[in-house]
Amino acid sequence: MYDERFLLHDTGPYHPEHPERLKAILKGIQDAGLLSDLTVFPAVSPEMKWIEAVHTKEYIQRFKEKCLAGEPILDDPDNKMCKDTYNTALLAVGGVIDAVRRVMENELDNAFCAVRPPGHHAEADKAMGFCYFGNVAIAAKYLLQKWHLSQILIIDFDAHHGNGTQHIFESDPSVIYYSIHQHPSFAYPGTGREFEVGTGKGTGSVKNSTSLPGNSDDDWKHLVERDLLPIFDKFNPEFILVSTGFDAHIDDQMSNVKISTEWYTWMIKLIMELASKHTDGKLVSVLEGGYVLKRLPELAKNHVEVLLNHSCHRRKKCLSQKQ
C-alpha cells in the first residue's frame, strides 16, 4: 500500500521524518523489479469510528483544528505540521485498514504499508514522537470489532518503544504487544521497560525486550528467541500486525544499537514462518521509523521480498490442495 499523498505531510527542514523516506522505499522496491509481482494500491479515507476506537474525540478535533489553522506543531516540537498533516494522517490510517480488509477477504496474502506519518508513539489523547494516529493500534481495533477476532499479535521492531500501542492495549488480553527496542534509559520515549507486562485483565499481554546501546545482531536474535517465541506457546494469533521500523540499523543515528541489514531479513523471515504456522500467513506490516535514505531502499526491498516469497508459498499450497 503506497500513496503519493503521503508525501504531502511536510515536516520542514532538518526533520528526520521527511517525505524522501518513502521515495527511497518505493525506489528500492521498484529498482529490484518487484512491482510487477505486487498488487500496489492507494490509501482510502477511513471511517472515523475506527480512529475514535483508539483516540479521544477531543484529541481528533484538536489535531484537525490546529492543523487546518496552520499551527506548526502539535503537542510537542517533535510533531511538526503543515496544512496537509491531518489529512495525510487520516489516509495512513485508511490505507492500513484497507490493507487489513484485503487480507481478511483473501484478496491479498499479506501486505506492506509504506505510510507516513508513523503511528506507534501516538497516545489516545496526544501526538508524540512524529506520530499522530496509531495506525497499527487502529488496525487492531478494526480486526477486533469488524472481524470479531479475539487473538491479535502486534510485533514492533522499531528501535523505539511503541508506547502508544502498548498503552492502548495493555489491559486487553485479546491483543498481545511484543516490542524489541533500545533500553528506555537511553532512548526515547523512556517507556517499554521489561517490568511493563500489561495491567488488569491484560497482565501478561505486553512483552518488552530491551537492548543496550552498542548491541548487535546476535543480541537482538537472542532477545527475540528468548521473548517472542514463547508467546506462541500460550497464544495462537489469528492475525499478525507488524510495526516495521528500520531505525535500529547501524547506520541510523536515531538509535545507538548496531543492527545489520541481514538481521532485518532474518526477523521478517522468522515472523513470516510464524505467521504461516499460526495465522495462515495473514499479516500486515506497517512502516514506523527508519531514517537513512541510503539504506532504506535495500531494507524495504528485502522486507517485501520475504512477504512476496511467503505469498507464493501460500498460493502454491492452495493450488496443490485444489489439485
Binding site: 532538518y14 526533520h15 528526520p16 510537542d76 516540537p77 517533535d78 508513539h121 508524540m128 514522537g129 512524529f130 523505539h160 526515547y188 520515549p189 543515528q253 536515531m254
Partner: peptide, 10 residues
C-alpha cells in the same frame, strides 16, 4: 531532552 529528535543538537 524532551524530544525524540536529538540528532541535530548532537
Amino acid at each position: 531532552l524532551f524530544s525524540k529528535n536529538v540528532v541535530p543538537v548532537k
